[in-house]
Design a protein around this nucleic acid. Structure first.
Length: 215
DNA sequence: AAAACGGGGGC
DNA sequence: GCCCCAGTTTT
């Protein structure tokens, strides 16, 4: 892995997936935050499917803060972990109203104090909503950066440290969603599909088309 | 450090 | 059938 190959891959990712995340961008801030919370241990595709009805039933942050838990659960059941998520969403909205005047805070320290919001959700929210740079290591980012040969570490904390040293900061606001999109469509958990991967020329595992996580 | 939370999709 | 998914909270 060389600085030059990293640069090529970053430029290719910009070309393939764009430099701003689409989809949630037209949401209000609290809607975007809740959508990211809902995506935990699920897929953004699954979440996008339930959002229209969810926002129709809960058009304002007050309406979801005041809603019965069972009502929220009913609307988000298909994304999994729904009991925790419903409780967290309700508590989170109440917190935003009580402690932040109804506006989602725009710094990571206040975000992680919200119910159901951890470091990953907070970082993704800041990047998606405001383009604020941040690197988080979810399962996709971990897998792909290991395959690319960008990182040596095994745990997310170590990998995040390595990535922040390796990647120019001007790419930090989009690297997460780009790698996640790539991980969902091409370089998946079970198969790397090197034949259709545009990053192939600069990848450590180029052409191996390997499987992983087989028991 | 480990368990709990979980339905839907891929193979 | 088993693995995986924009993780966080509780024990």
């Amino acid at each position: 892995m060389t600085k030059e190959s990293v640069k090529h891959i970053l430029e290719t990712l910009d070309k393939e997936y764009g430099t701003t995340k689409e989809g949630f961008l037209h949401s209000k801030d609290w809607q975007l935050l809740l959508a990211i919370m809902l995506s935990a241990q699920s897929t953004d595709k699954q979440v996008e499917e339930i959002l229209p009805k969810l926002w129709e039933r809960f058009p304002t942050i007050e309406s979801i803060a005041d809603a019965p838990l069972e009502d929220i659960e009913e609307h988000i059941k298909s994304v999994g972990l729904y009991k925790n998520k419903a409780k967290n969403m309700k508590n989170c909205c109440n917190q935003i109203l009580a402690e932040h005047g109804g506006k989602v805070p725009v710094n990571i320290d206040e975000l992680v104090n919200l119910s159901g919001v951890g470091r990953k959700t907070a970082t993704l929210f800041l990047a998606d909503a405001y383009g604020i740079p941040g690197v988080t290591v979810d399962t996709h980012v971990m897998r792909i950066t290991q395959r690319l040969g960008w990182v040596q570490g095994k745990n997310p904390v170590q990998i995040e440290k390595e990535l922040m040293e390796l990647l120019p900061k001007e790419y930090w606001n989009r690297i997460n969603f780009q790698l996640i999109y790539h991980g969902r469509s091409i370089c998946t958990a079970r198969k790397s599909n090197c034949g259709s991967c545009t990053l192939n020329p600069w990848c450590e595992k180029k052409g191996t088309d390997f499987y992983c996580n087989k028991k």
